[in-house]
């Protein structure tokens, strides 16, 4: 029997990871959770602004603010794609199929980022639509600003997914990975904000991501480009940490 020669190159590994992601239920559940949390959060954001008579703000801020919570749906999706391989032992099969280990991590990061970007933008559109009704006139709509915010949410979620894949390869175990992610993306920055250390938080994905996705608030210490670069730098650092751990360790 002769098999035709196809190159087992990077697109093959990406296709393999894509198929693995959707052949178990967790990814779909994470997306569903992201949609539900976005919808509920955005509704309350708009309703509270209306009830309390907040000044008029860009409608996209509702969905943008939900990111601090919704990011964990995409983080769990990306994390499970890595840690489930270690808990089930299937990482050995994966590395037999693609022994150039960084290619595995890059493929997982790309797939998770693609799903998080698409899912993030869909969530942002949904959240914006829900919030528009809930604001009931306390929000402004500008197509350009809203589009920028929707895309910013998608980009932020994609960067969180890349960061998560890196952390998960470094930690291997879901408990450890989740502890790092919750600390970095929420617990530490919100504690620091409570202590008044806002300048430190501006250097973390939490602060930079917030400045990146929100609009019209003013008071940001830097522009959206700097903000997204800060988040990207964190994602790159986590990616390199995961790459180092994956390269070094026995599978």
């Amino acid at each position: 029997m002769r098999l035709p020669l196809l190159s087992p190159a990077f697109p093959g590994t990406v296709g393999s990871e894509w198929g693995k992601l959707w052949s178990v239920r967790s990814a779909g559940l994470c997306l569903l959770a992201a949609l539900v949390v976005t919808g509920v959060f955005s509704y309350y954001y708009g309703a509270i602004a209306r009830i309390n008579g907040h000044p008029v703000q860009p409608v996209g801020n509702a969905a943008a603010s939900s990111v601090v919570l919704v990011q964990f749906a995409f983080a769990v999706l990306a994390m499970v794609a890595v840690t489930s391989e270690y808990t089930t032992g299937s990482i050995r099969a994966t590395l037999l199929w693609t022994p150039r280990r960084h290619r595995v991590q890059a493929a997982k990061a790309l797939v998770a980022a693609g799903v998080a970007f698409s899912g993030g933008t869909v969530c942002a559109v949904l959240g914006t639509a829900v919030a528009w009704g809930a604001f009931d006139g306390r929000a402004s709509f500008d197509a350009g600003t809203t589009a920028r915010q929707v895309l910013a949410v998608g980009v932020y979620q994609a960067l969180v997914a890349v960061l998560t894949v890196g952390v998960a390869f470094a930690a291997r175990h879901p408990a450890g990975a989740l502890a790092v992610l919750v600390s970095l993306l929420w617990a530490v920055p919100s504690t620091l904000l409570g202590l008044g250390a806002a300048t430190v938080v501006d250097g973390l994905p939490y602060g930079a991501g917030g400045h990146f996705v929100s609009a019209g608030a003013g008071g940001a210490p830097y522009g959206p480009v700097t903000a997204v670069l800060i988040v990207a730098a964190w994602a790159a650092a986590a990616h390199l940490a995961g790459r180092y751990a994956l390269h070094r360790a026995d599978a």
């Binding site: 035709p4 196809l6 093959g12 590994t13 393999s16 693995k20 178990v24 089930t88 099969a93 693609t98």
Partner: peptide, 23 residues
């Protein structure tokens, strides 16, 4: 036994085929 328990045997092998450039 090192296969994801929720993934079907066929899905496991399809992922392998894609990664390995096998039809």
């Amino acid at each position: 036994r090192a296969v994801h328990p929720a993934r079907s045997g066929r899905a496991h092998l399809v992922a392998q085929a894609r990664a390995g450039g096998i039809p």
